[in-house]
Computed example of a mutant assay.
Amino acid sequence: MKPNDDSGKLPTSERPFRVLIISGSDRRQYNCPGVDSKSRALMLRMAERLPQEWEIDYEDLGNVYGRARIQSCNACVSTSMALCCWPCNCYEKGDKKEPDLLWDVDMYARLDLADAWAIIGPHNWYGASSNLKLMFDRLVCMNGGNPNEKLIDHKNPEKAMALEHSAQWEDLSVNHLEGRSAGFFCYGDEGGDEMDETGRPKKLRHKAWFNPDEEPFENARDAYAPLVWQSRYSGIEVPDELWTYCTTGKGLPYSNNQSEDMIREAEFMGAFDTWTDRFAAFVGAKGKVEPGRWRAYGYEAPGHRWADAKLAWRDVRMRVGRAPEGSSPRAQEELGLNEDAVLNRHKSEGARLRE
C-alpha cells in the first residue's frame, strides 16, 4: 500500500509494517542524461513485488534540473560529535542559500518511519554513486548525533566541545535508528565495451600502469562496503545474504545498456527478484521496529536567529584574526597552522595565491 506518514503517530503494534526503497543512481531523464536509470526501474519493480499489505515508500535520488541536490556533509563530527546534530541541522527545509534534497523530501523522517531500507544503485568508478555516498555521509548523525541543538546554541563549536566532555553527553549520544534492517543491491557492467582481451581499457596508452590483477574488488559487491559497514556501525542490521552485486550489460556500449535492455537479461532480472524475495522474507520475519527516543519523524527545528547572530560575530572575529579565546581556531592561529584569517571567505586558495 502507499505510505501514510500519519502511521508514525500510532503505537508500533497498531501501524503497518513499512519499507523504504531508494534508487541511488544520479541519472534522471529530467536532466542532461535524458534517460532514467536502471536503479529507478528496479526500485519500481521491487515496490510491485513486495507484500502489498506493507506500507511501501520509495525515493529516486537522481539529479533533476532545477531541484535541490543532496548537500555534502560538513564534517561537524570531526570538530565534536556533539556538533553533529540529529537530525542534521547544517541545512534545513526550503533553504534558498543552501537547498538540500534530504530535507526537502523529508528523508530523515522517512528513514525513521521505515522498519527496513532497500538500497539499489550502480557501481560508479569502483564505488557507490555520488548521491548515495552523499546521503550516507549525511547520515553520520544517526550514529550518536546530538539530539538537542539548544545545548550548543545551534552550532557553537566551543559549546559542542564542552558538551562532548560532560556527563550528560553519554545519555544523549545514541544510535538513533538502531534496530532497522537494510539490504543493498548493486550492479555494474564491468567496463561495458571499453575493456580489451587482457582486461585493460582499450583507450589506455600506458598499459603498464593498469594491472588487471590488482583491480578492485575480488567480490564486486565490496564497492558498497563503506555503506554497508557504516550501517552496521550505526546499529542497522545488514544480513550478508541481503548484500548483493550483479552484472548487467557487460561487453555492450553504454547506449545499449538501458533499462529496456536490462529487463531482457533473464539471469540478471532473476537475481534481482531473488534478492527482493530474500529481503521480503527476512524483514517480514523480523517484524516492526520500535522508534528511537529522539525521532526525526515529527521533528521541528527550533528557531536560531539569535544563535546565528552570535555565530556571525564569531565568524567576523576569525576573519580579522581574533578567534575566540580558548577555541581551536585561536590555537591554530597562534601555531600558524591554518592561515585562514581572510576578509573574503569566499575567495579560493588558488585566487589568493595569485594575488
Rank of each mutant, 00 (worst) to 15 (best):
L163V: 03
P201T: 06
K155G: 05
D95R: 02
G24C: 01
E149W: 07
H346M: 14
M262C: 06
M142P: 04
T12Q: 12
S130K: 00
I70F: 06
A341E: 06
L337C: 06
C186I: 03
M81P: 10
A116I: 01
S234D: 11
Y297I: 09
E334C: 03
V289D: 15
G121I: 00
S25R: 01
C85G: 04
D106A: 04
M195P: 09
C76V: 06
D196C: 04
L353Y: 10
R205C: 03
Y126I: 09
E164Y: 06
F210N: 14
Q52F: 13
S173E: 08
E98N: 15
N219G: 04
L139E: 01
W169F: 14
R322Q: 12
L204G: 12
R330T: 01
D193R: 06
K96Y: 13
Y30F: 13
E334D: 03
E164D: 05
A162M: 15
E215N: 07
S72R: 10
V64W: 13
E164R: 12
K250H: 15
S166T: 14
Y299W: 15
E260V: 05
Y245K: 00
A118D: 02
W313H: 02
F217S: 13
G284K: 02
E14R: 11
F282Q: 01
P216W: 04
R354I: 02
K2H: 14
P201V: 08
D137P: 00
D189P: 03
T12L: 14
D273L: 03
G191H: 12
P216M: 04
G62Q: 07
R18W: 04
A109F: 12
L44F: 08
M107P: 07
T274A: 01
E214R: 10
T244M: 00
R138Y: 00
Q168W: 08
S7I: 06
E300P: 13
R221L: 04
C141T: 10
F136L: 09
S129C: 13
R278K: 05
D60H: 08
E194F: 13
D95K: 01
L134M: 15
W54T: 00
L83M: 11
R305D: 10
F272W: 07
A323S: 05
N63S: 08
M161F: 04
S13I: 12
L172G: 02
K202Y: 10
